[in-house]
Amino acid sequence: MIIKKISGLATVQDLGRVGYASQGVPRGGALCPVLLRRANRAVGNEDGAACIEVFGRLVVVADASVGIATERGEVATLQSGEEYVVEPDAGLRVRYLAVGGGVAAPLVLGSRSTLVCFNDPLHAGSVIGAGVGVGAGVGVGVGVGVGVGAGAGAGVGVIAGPDAQGFDAFVSATWRIGAASNRMGTRLDGPTLARATGDVLPSSPTVIGAIQLPAGGSPIVIGPDGPTTGGYPIIAVIARAHLDAFHALPLGASIAFTTQA
């Protein structure tokens, strides 16, 4: 299979690399593991096989007969020369294209996931091999992902962070998924939150779903490619069971958080 056109960003992602945070290596992997699993199961792959993660629109063309599926459960067998288009979904920030046998990409520390400093995103002309199986990544389950998709932005559970300044103001506000969001972090557009003054914090380990409050007062949610450490206050952390639903929200979607004990 060959990439014919990308409008946006397309990368190879699986369930990421776990165990290297102390070397500064982010977990990486699918922004929405539940959607990756759906695409993989539809094509008959193992849950953690590498897929193509698509922000925007992707056109591929088969160079041989190949089985594919998306996170919608749409399954197809492309014949050589046949095109397939992954269109943007108004209800989802990201989509997944699974290839029978899993997308081939170099294993780096147990994962085939693209990390921009290791390897480049896919581009027009990239050749997608398949049939390599799952990487040796360890210990990552796939979350339950309740209510992924449109309308899921109500009541994403958050737990107060260790630097919980401004938590009440954060939880009581309504936010939108910011346009400048990427795999490193999701920007939340909304009110500017006050920070305690003079709070130069020593670097702390982060976690996917940690909500940092930079000096400008606009929160950032750490994504799978986000830095493993950071010096901004962590005001809240999204509950694990709600991470897929949160990351599936399209840019501009409205979101309200609820406090979870």
């Binding site: 165990g19 945070a21 102390s22 702390s204 380990p205």
Partner: peptide, 14 residues
């Protein structure tokens, strides 16, 4: 525990 991370002031376990 599947991972750990350390900074000058903190140790985290995942």
């Amino acid at each position: 525990v599947v991972d750990a991370s350390i900074t000058e002031e903190w140790l985290a376990v995942y």
